[in-house]
Nucleic acid binder design. Sequence first.
DNA 1: TATCCTCTGTACGAAATCGTACAGACATGG
DNA 2: CCATGTCTGTACGATTTCGTACAGAGGATA
Lengths: 227, 227
Amino acid sequence: MQIEQSSVGNLLLASLSPGDYALFAPDLVRVDLIRRTLLSSPEQPIVYCWFLENGIASMVATSRDGQETEAGIVGREGMIDVATIMGSPRTPLRTFIQISGKGLRIPARTMIAAYSASETVRKTFNQFTFELLCQIAQTALANASYSVEQRLARWLLMCADRLDRNEISLTHESLSVMLNVRRAGVTQAIQSLQSAGYLETRRGSARIVNRRGLEEFAQDAYSAPLL
Amino acid sequence: MQIEQSSVGNLLLASLSPGDYALFAPDLVRVDLIRRTLLSSPEQPIVYCWFLENGIASMVATSRDGQETEAGIVGREGMIDVATIMGSPRTPLRTFIQISGKGLRIPARTMIAAYSASETVRKTFNQFTFELLCQIAQTALANASYSVEQRLARWLLMCADRLDRNEISLTHESLSVMLNVRRAGVTQAIQSLQSAGYLETRRGSARIVNRRGLEEFAQDAYSAPLL
DNA sequence: TATCCTCTGTACGAAATCGTACAGACATGG
DNA sequence: CCATGTCTGTACGATTTCGTACAGAGGATA
């Protein structure tokens, strides 16, 4: 039984015309996506494309010597992996589930077929690809110009934008990997944001309680997504 | 008189089939591109796309509060601005000529028309777009993980890859803006690379004299371009 | 309840980088 | 040749972030 477009929580798929959606529908499969699930990685060709409906995926740039930093995040507003539509069977970026959720999966070859079959599909997905490129460029800027605290604030805000809640479940350890700082540095930064009244925290999660304040604190490290 | 494809030094245009090239040819104009020339910017819609034949263009991510950092560079292997083919009439990234050279200019609307007319044009340009996305992700990684000296080494190597020479004409001041560090920091980093025997420098320029050594020093901040 | 493992808070000196300032070197144009 | 503006070298303390280590808190399991 095919998945009805009206039941799809992914914004890209939901925005397609019924005709375009029909190109995807036969091969869409709904899946649970739990933390740490690998969606694509440099080690192997891309087999599936993924469309989150909730939760967050993290795109990470890696180097052979073991450094890794998050380049961008994708939630229900996007797809994984854009390499596929850009004509590359592989990607140098590793993408995995950072915050568990549900989503849809489709064979990469179906994605490619739909992309070449329809100009409007191309338009929709190209637009997302460019938004992603801009997000990654902003990450490069943030990494070079802003403090750990501000980068943390940016990350929390971007996450909250892509979830429908202000509660974000993550350990300091994961955040330290994403931001490429010490775990202890994250602890201090979180405390600082908390004592300023922007967050409440519990073991394993943080909640934004003063979004406006957090945005101001982040300054232009964060700017509202182009969504 | 149209520009012969065989005389075109830009690798994207040169790689097109004659039929695809014909979509561009009527509107291509060869131009001199001198340092600081703005190719595209957030302030205005994109009117032209540009294809360098030599020299380097710098893509810079900016924030309203005045921070700016280079997200990536483009030489004769690419085009400016990919926003156009991804369907966006505007771009948040500022692109300008960092190292003077020659190139070709085409109206953005011609670019769009060629892109939608030919699947092979799309394939060629999508591939470049993805390479650029990956380059920017690497910049994000480098900014978060590597020292100023290593980032400088990376930058010099990437520039040399895109020129046909090892001599790079730039002041410490420009480099400091690109890498988002103090001008004095660039001076020190350059001295360090010089005393290690990787570079020779003169007022306003640096020359790579031990490329292999520089690559090793940069570690995985630099990895050979996917070109 | 007792045990174990993960997560968080905190401390310390070390290192990188910053912000700023100033003087000398170089290049260009009158 | 001189004057002027740009570029480079250098210095200083201040600040941020690092690397590492350890102890206590929270939560799960036996």
